[in-house]
């Protein structure tokens, strides 16, 4: 059965805001990455799936249930982690988790307990005293504790420290092995790269492309920032046949894009020169995506 199906979903907020004719579907057992800049329409799409807003045209279904009319039925099989997590004030994390369990009719708290341990969470504090990361962990426990068939995770690792982000990636892998269908929006490349089967890019409310992550991983290009000890070396390197992205004379640094195949050439060239520092510049996910997209993959459109 198709886990999530979105057909020509449109919600026009005016001023080019909103989402326009979005269509994609997520199969059972598939992990689907949803990326795009802020305000692109990721959350608006997710709101439709949650039944919080009604589309102007098109429709979305989860497990063949209409997401506007049958949200109650859908929620039984769904775990949701919102982008901006907010809990009722004046409750402790433990109370919040227990209340969700009661609402869902979950009696067995084994999974909740496992998650609490996995994320090293102390839920006994009041929610309003908690840091962003702690609230996020409480949200994760609430979204996963009933072992739902489908997970919708809106920027799930915001607020988590790098260690916890990797714990989260591990959790996604576990769920994937159990055959869960997951829709995950994200800004972080590492999060998406290792986990998603397919990735959709949305920009200005329109779906730009959907691609398999295998294709995506073949993009082996890195940007380095290299600083030189003196002006002579700085000028000499520019005569070599590299693609320079940026040249800063003030601090004698250059930025260059390099394919993995070219890496030995670069090391060779640098070995003869006085280099003070070399640093890899991380692409933002969007940049990665846009670059990849530019490199002749127009057939995806």
């Amino acid at each position: 059965m198709t886990a999530i199906k979105i057909q020509h979903l449109t919600k026009d907020y005016g001023n080019n805001k909103g989402i326009f004719d979005i269509s994609f579907q997520i199969e059972e057992g598939e992990v689907f990455g949803f990326v795009g800049p802020n305000g692109a329409g990721k959350t608006t799409t997710i709101r439709h799936l949650m039944g919080f807003i009604k589309s102007q045209s098109g429709k979305s279904t989860i497990l063949n249930l209409d997401s506007w009319n049958q949200s109650k039925e859908i929620q039984k099989h769904l775990g949701y982690l919102p982008a901006e997590i907010a809990f009722p004030a004046n409750m402790t994390g433990t109370q919040i988790i227990q209340h969700v369990a009661n609402m869902r009719g979950v009696r067995d708290m084994t999974i909740a307990q496992q998650l609490i341990e996995m994320f090293d969470l102390d839920p006994s504090a009041l929610i309003k005293r908690m840091s962003k990361g702690m609230k996020q962990k409480v949200g994760i426990v609430c979204a996963f504790m009933h072992d739902p068939q489908i997970l919708i995770l809106d920027e799930p690792t915001t607020g988590l420290d790098p260690l916890m982000q990797s714990v989260f990636v591990k959790l996604i892998h576990q769920e994937k092995q159990k055959g869960k269908s997951i829709l995950m929006s994200s800004h972080l490349f590492e999060e998406i790269e290792g986990t998603c089967d397919r990735i959709a890019m949305i920009k200005q409310g329109r779906l730009i492309s959907v691609m398999n992550s295998q294709d995506f991983k073949h993009f082996d290009k890195t940007t380095y920032k290299i600083t030189f000890g003196d002006l002579q070396n700085f000028h000499a390197i520019q005569k070599e046949g590299f693609t320079f992205r940026d040249i800063h004379e003030e601090d004698l640094s250059i930025m260059l894009d390099i394919e993995d195949l070219q890496i030995n050439e670069l090391i060779d060239a640098l070995s003869k020169r006085d280099v003070t520092s070399i640093r890899e510049i991380k692409y933002s996910l969007e940049e990665y995506f846009m670059n990849f997209y530019k490199e002749g993959n127009h057939d995806h459109v």
Partner: peptide, 14 residues
């Protein structure tokens, strides 16, 4: 306004 309604409506309730 605060967003905690999402917390309620993401449980099986109309």
């Amino acid at each position: 306004d605060k967003g905690s309604m999402a917390y309620h409506l993401s449980t099986p309730i109309t």
